[in-house]
């Protein structure tokens, strides 16, 4: 295996595109092309986003036509796209809170004096 690349102070990778020659594919598992070959296509991220957006829109539109029944106390959830809104907001809040929380709670890896130890039963050659 090769070492992980350098990072800058905020933890971002330093110019990953300038990284020395791409790792050769000789160690690539034969099945990976079959399963995940599509991941490597440069258009994939955009296509994926498009698909997700389309599905999301589809789900919300479907919600308009389907007459949902909620429990008595949570009747407010019958409004169109309630779950969509809640899911999006919840996710965004959880992720964005990572910024201040990270600043507040993250300490050096060796904070408790026990940084980076591998369990005994990992493969010895790595």
């Amino acid at each position: 295996m090769t070492l992980p690349p350098e990072r800058d102070a905020s933890g971002r990778f330093i110019k990953p595109e300038e990284e020395a020659p791409k790792p050769s594919d000789e160690h690539t598992h034969p099945m990976s092309k079959l399963f995940f070959g599509w991941v490597e296509s440069p258009r994939t991220p955009f296509l994926l986003l498009l698909i997700v957006v389309l599905i999301s829109v589809g789900l919300i539109v479907a919600d308009v036509f389907i007459d949902r029944h909620e429990y008595k106390y949570t009747a407010f959830a019958e409004s169109t796209g309630f779950y969509a809104f809640w899911g999006f907001a919840a996710f965004a809040i959880a992720v964005l809170s990572g910024w201040p929380l990270g600043k507040l709670l993250r300490r050096d890896e060796d904070y408790y004096g026990e940084a980076d130890t591998k369990p005994q039963d990992v493969e010895s050659d790595s």
């Binding site: 779950y83 969509a84 996710f91 050096d108």
Partner: peptide, 26 residues
């Protein structure tokens, strides 16, 4: 709805660089 919109949120946050980077630390 809940899950797909959350996935969408992930993609957007990632795309706009708002997703906190994974950093070593305790």
């Amino acid at each position: 709805q809940l899950l797909m919109l959350a996935v969408l949120a992930f993609m957007l946050l990632k795309r706009f660089g708002l997703y906190p980077p994974e950093r070593p630390g305790t």
